[in-house]
Simulated assay, not measured.
Amino acid sequence: MSKYLLNKFLFTVDRDPALVERYRAEPRETVLWWETGEANRLLNCVDAEKSTWQAFTAAEREALATHDYPALFDLGAHPFLTLTLFIALFERDYEVPLGFQMEYAARLADRGLPYPDIAT
């Protein structure tokens, strides 16, 4: 399991509005595209600088592909990265102010301390 790669996905997708929309519409395809083409690109480096070994686990890939943020939380994804991306994805679907944030809190309410380690 690579919490670094999981958080890198959340971070990079959240910062690109077109990629947010792509991930909303085609999550499984977007995850596979990102993993095969972007995952090993180093942040803030030239394209020639790449690693070659990083990949999602099956559990990470499935949680990302199904927008399963409770599973992402359990896998150690950073809760702020998860929350900000999923607000961008789903807040528009709620008529109530903070509707998605309330659902996010309710779906994670059964988690108790200690929370999963979010250190990368």
Rank of each mutant, 00 (worst) to 15 (best):
M1R: 15
M1W: 15
M1F: 10
M1I: 10
Y4V: 11
L6P: 02
N7Q: 07
K8D: 01
K8F: 01
F9S: 04
F9Y: 10
F11R: 13
F11V: 03
T12R: 14
V13E: 11
D14A: 14
D14T: 05
D14Q: 10
D16V: 04
P17G: 03
P17I: 00
P17Y: 01
A18E: 13
L19C: 06
E21C: 03
R22L: 11
R24W: 00
A25M: 08
A25V: 02
E26Y: 12
R28I: 01
R28M: 07
R28F: 04
E29R: 15
L32T: 14
L32P: 04
W33N: 14
W33A: 12
W34A: 03
W34H: 03
E35K: 02
G37V: 03
E38C: 04
E38V: 02
N40L: 03
L42K: 12
N44P: 02
N44E: 13
C45H: 13
V46M: 10
V46K: 13
V46L: 15
D47N: 14
D47W: 06
D47Y: 05
E49N: 10
E49L: 13
K50V: 14
S51C: 00
W53S: 10
W53K: 11
Q54D: 10
T57A: 07
T57S: 15
T57G: 08
A58G: 07
E62H: 12
A63Y: 07
L64N: 04
D68F: 02
D68V: 01
Y69E: 07
Y69H: 12
L72S: 07
L72Y: 06
D74H: 09
G76A: 07
G76P: 05
T82W: 08
T84P: 00
T84F: 02
L85V: 12
F86P: 12
I87L: 12
I87P: 02
I87F: 06
A88N: 15
A88M: 04
A88H: 15
L89F: 07
L89D: 13
E91F: 03
R92N: 04
R92C: 01
D93C: 08
Y94W: 09
Y94P: 03
Y94G: 04
E95R: 13
E95G: 09
V96D: 15
P97A: 11
L98A: 14
G99R: 09
G99T: 09
G99S: 12
Q101S: 12
M102R: 14
E103S: 08
Y104R: 12
A105G: 13
A105Y: 12
R107W: 03
R107Y: 09
R107P: 07
L108W: 00
R111G: 00
G112Y: 00
G112P: 00
P114N: 12
P114M: 02
P114Y: 01
D117W: 01
